[in-house]
């Protein structure tokens, strides 16, 4: 694989991002390594080709946001909103991720080896997120589709106002949000979990150690008993 190196201590981020927006014919199959990210915001956002990107260090806000097709690895931690609104491809954070990781993501796979902060997978719209550590409070708030797998614990109000996303948690859940409830693990859900564990480097983890949470669907329609609340 052809490899290119950028050093953000020497090259402006805008130049690096502009290169990463080159036509797919230029980028497909290449490996781009970005050194000294030093917490800069918006690294490798809006990628649209089958390129491999390694961010060698800690990334700032919105790293790999809006990703399509590309495979982005952050060797350190990622700031707020990593892989937000991802459409496809893979984003892999080897350290921890801050708040709102994978927010509104529609497709693709976000892997976080460490912990994720609050509101992980908020308004998730179809992507898959696998967190090796724990997630903070209000994770999967209003998540509509897709899967969130948490190998550690979940904070308060998990899955509040949830639609049809699946939430798999191996550890403790501090509290469930409104309309989120534990579900029986059917064969389909179990297979999804097994596949995601395999894809994210956790093939050795037993799917039987997880609980599945989903929507109780009581908020889908207006209930006349609540008329007095308005």
């Amino acid at each position: 694989m052809e490899s290119l190196k950028f050093d953000l201590a020497a090259t402006p981020l805008r130049e690096v991002n502009q290169y990463l927006h080159s036509p797919a014919s230029e980028l497909n199959g290449k490996h781009v390594v970005i050194h000294n990210p030093n917490g800069a915001h918006n690294i490798a956002v809006g990628l649209k080709s089958d390129v491999q990107v390694t961010i060698d260090g800690h990334a700032g806000y919105y790293a790999a946001g809006m990703n399509q097709l590309a495979n982005v690895v952050v060797t350190g931690s990622a700031g707020t909103g990593v892989a937000e609104n991802m459409m496809s491809g893979v984003v892999h954070v080897k350290g921890f991720a801050s708040n709102a990781a994978g927010a509104t993501a529609q497709g693709g796979l976000l892997i976080i080896d460490g912990d994720a902060g609050l509101r992980c997978g908020i308004s998730l719209k179809g992507a898959d997120i696998v967190v090796g550590g724990s997630v903070g409070s209000f994770s999967a708030f209003m998540a509509q589709a897709g899967n969130l797998v948490v190998l550690g614990d979940a904070g308060e109000a998990l899955g509040d106002s949830l639609y049809e996303a699946r939430l798999f948690v191996r550890g403790e859940v501090k509290s469930l949000g409104a309309d989120c409830e534990e579900k029986p693990m059917d064969d389909e859900a179990r297979q999804i979990l097994v596949d995601l564990l395999a894809k994210s480097g956790h093939a050795d983890v037993s799917p039987d150690s997880f609980k599945l949470f989903g929507s109780a669907r009581t908020l889908y329609n207006f209930h006349v008993d609540n008329a007095g609340a308005y």
Binding site: N38, G39, A40, H58, G60, Y61, S77, G79
Partner: peptide
């Protein structure tokens, strides 16, 4: 507030 202030 952010890592960019710790990077150096």
């Amino acid at each position: 507030s952010e890592f960019r202030s710790l990077a150096h």
